[in-house]
């Protein structure tokens, strides 16, 4: 399979892999290795924002991911983490699934992998909210 330049760059560099820890971190995952794709996000809001009553308005300070998946999955997850800092946690995925599909030219049969990214992100934010 051929990949476009943003996909190759994101796949080859993948700067935002890893995990975060601390009271302001929420973790969520979607998919499974057995099914071929698994994505996990750690979303961290700034320390001051952890005291806010509504996590939706807390500001994301950092995000990291782990992924077992194809180059499109890894590049898109990395891009989402890269775009996350400074955004409200409740604003949803930092870039829409449709926009990710266009950016990385993800083939239609692989769109489900972007939906897993969206689900994993939502699960991470939900976990953060549930701690409050």
């Amino acid at each position: 399979m051929d990949y476009n330049e943003p996909t190759l760059r994101g796949f080859e560099t993948a700067l935002y892999t890893g995990e975060l820890s601390g009271p302001g971190v929420g973790r969520g995952a979607a998919g499974s290795v057995a099914a071929g794709t698994w994505v996990q996000f750690d979303v961290q809001v700034s320390a001051g924002d952890t005291a806010q009553p509504r996590i939706e308005t807390a500001c994301i300070e950092n995000a990291r991911f782990r992924a077992y998946g194809c180059p499109h999955t890894i590049a898109a997850a990395d891009w989402v983490c890269q775009r996350a800092a400074g955004r409200p946690a409740g604003a949803g995925l930092p870039e829409s699934v449709e926009s990710l599909q266009r950016r990385f030219e993800v083939p239609v049969p692989k769109m489900g992998r972007l939906l897993l990214i969206e689900d994993a992100w939502a699960a991470a934010v939900a976990e953060l909210a549930s701690r409050r």
């Binding site: 399979m1 990949y3 190759l8 796949f11 290795v33 794709t37 077992y68 998946g69 194809c70 180059p71």
Partner: peptide
């Protein structure tokens, strides 16, 4: 524990 498509890429 390695995804095949990514390995080939």
């Amino acid at each position: 524990h390695v995804e095949g498509e990514s390995l080939l890429a």
